[in-house]
Design a protein around this nucleic acid. Sequence first.
DNA 1: TGTTAGCACTCATTCCCGTCGAGTGCTAAC
DNA 2: GTTAGCACTCGACGGGAATGAGTGCTAACA
Lengths: 343, 343
Amino acid sequence: MDLSDRKKKILQAIIDEYIGTAEPVGSRAISKKENLGLSSATIRNEMADLEEMGYLIQPHTSAGRIPSDEGYRFYVNSLMRDYKIGMDAVAQLQSMLESRVSLLDKLIRYAGAIASNLTEYTTVISAPKDDDSEIKKVDVVAVESHTVMLIVVTRRVRSASVNVNLSGEGCERLAQLINKSLAGMKPREVTRDTIEEIKDGAKGFIKDSALDKILGCLYDTVTADAETEIYVTNANSILRYPEFADVEKARDMLSFLDDKEKLKKLAAADTGEGINATIGKENDFEILQDSSLVSMNYTLPSGGAGKLTVIGPKRMNYSKVFASLDLISNEIEKLVNYYMNGS
Amino acid sequence: MDLSDRKKKILQAIIDEYIGTAEPVGSRAISKKENLGLSSATIRNEMADLEEMGYLIQPHTSAGRIPSDEGYRFYVNSLMRDYKIGMDAVAQLQSMLESRVSLLDKLIRYAGAIASNLTEYTTVISAPKDDDSEIKKVDVVAVESHTVMLIVVTRRVRSASVNVNLSGEGCERLAQLINKSLAGMKPREVTRDTIEEIKDGAKGFIKDSALDKILGCLYDTVTADAETEIYVTNANSILRYPEFADVEKARDMLSFLDDKEKLKKLAAADTGEGINATIGKENDFEILQDSSLVSMNYTLPSGGAGKLTVIGPKRMNYSKVFASLDLISNEIEKLVNYYMNGS
DNA sequence: TGTTAGCACTCATTCCCGTCGAGTGCTAAC
DNA sequence: GTTAGCACTCGACGGGAATGAGTGCTAACA
């Protein structure tokens, strides 16, 4: 079942060409790519073989060939050349990262944006859940006459505002009570009973109605499904590809990219270690059957894991995307280490 | 320059029809709309007049007529019928609002989403700046071994994390110092000098390098351009309209809707009191020349003002959009009042 | 035995042109 | 002032014909 060296070269040339043009590639085009001195007729024979083996497809009798899913798969596994990312792109990446790193929570978002910049495809990045991070502190602040702000600090900060009238002093006492109960707990361990306890303690100095409102909101905020945040960058880039020249298709894809639920499933899918491609029909989602994903799982040293996914047409520039994700993961790791240990 | 009643009715019928179909409207179609018992020939004469007066346009000799910008303008100012919003939509709106109102900061976002739901067009809503709201409290919380979270509470909550090592006690002392200096100030009044003062006070118990990092980040966070937040909802809805059947156009519009800078300018434009339409060429942006906006300025009782804008094709259903915005503004006002005074 | 030139064949794309029909403007009659 | 009638315009649609890219096959060549 092995391919001869020549077949490999031809397959590679075909896919490289197709990635660039999105047009079926003919034998003549390949034979003119001097590096293998063969006539178009010979190429045709080889192409016929490759088609029979399942690596190529002929859209119709007199058209050139396009790669099949298997063709891409073989290309990604064995043929792809290394892609050299330009120094300016690297420099740009580094400066972007450095300027933002003080806000670790934003790192994720930037990582997605950077990946999209480098690859020019759409990216989807899932921020790590913070299920397991405990509640560090809860704050209750009177913001204006009728508004109280609740702030819950875990690894993230969540906040909510409640419309009740509460003095600054009342806020402080309540905050103390809440912290005594909640600090150190994990959000999902908090129950209605925990809240009831707080209520009992605070009954003395806060009106029942106000207390109910505040604590109800507190409960909601704390337990608010520690949502996996999903950020999509550059969704509109799909409109640049002839694959989406049909508005119908474009709309479907953009709706998909708007659907957080589906994207969460996407981010939750098992894509193995490191950087991996999922090509066409290998995808679970109907709508991705004509697209490819390149995914990279990441883990932050602070715990928490997520996934960065690049979405593009099946004929995406795999080598560039792989190289970009590799670069990003290295740079971020360097940076994180530096900030964890250094200074 | 006044239009006869009959001309008004005909113009209205034409625009109503065109809003529904997006096809040039012919005289026969109008004459069959029984309510005025006129033959198509008569309608034709009137249409020729209306065209001469600038309210209609004929795309080519043997086509029907479509409204000009002036036609739409006249329609919006004088012809538009009142639109009755279905009770179920109202009920849905109310329940949406009630379930979310405890999070006042999210109200804006929901308002945008609701407007988009009701009208089925894209909405852009700008959240009020909080330039003028003073700093209520600043919190410093050690989140994990190497991370400290800064939380600045004004009318909003802003937070940032810094990678330094600081004990819980250190955090508290620092927070006290910071609060003594900053609480009550307005963000834009905070200067490097203010920060230096805090630094002097904290030098005793925090390493210089760590302090620099934290205070640098604090300064950034506090002064971080009290950005006008802009939320866009349902941008993809434009792909439903034949006006955007061309992917090129759709892409341009979607890029525009992605461009926060441009949207801020849009939100900053003067659109007068109440609910107002800006039609076609009346828009400043090149790309909106074939679209219309309906904008509503709002003011929150807590101060702060912003704008809700609905974007659609020129032939948008103006009456529905006007009615929807009106409804939203009423419902939200009711709700806000209720929560400010009641209970 | 592998490679190549040549040739007939296929099929998507493009362009042209005739037909169709929606819609107009004009005129003459009511 | 209104309407019926009619000639005219022009985009949309559809059916070839021409074009050309690309193939498969065969026979000759090294």
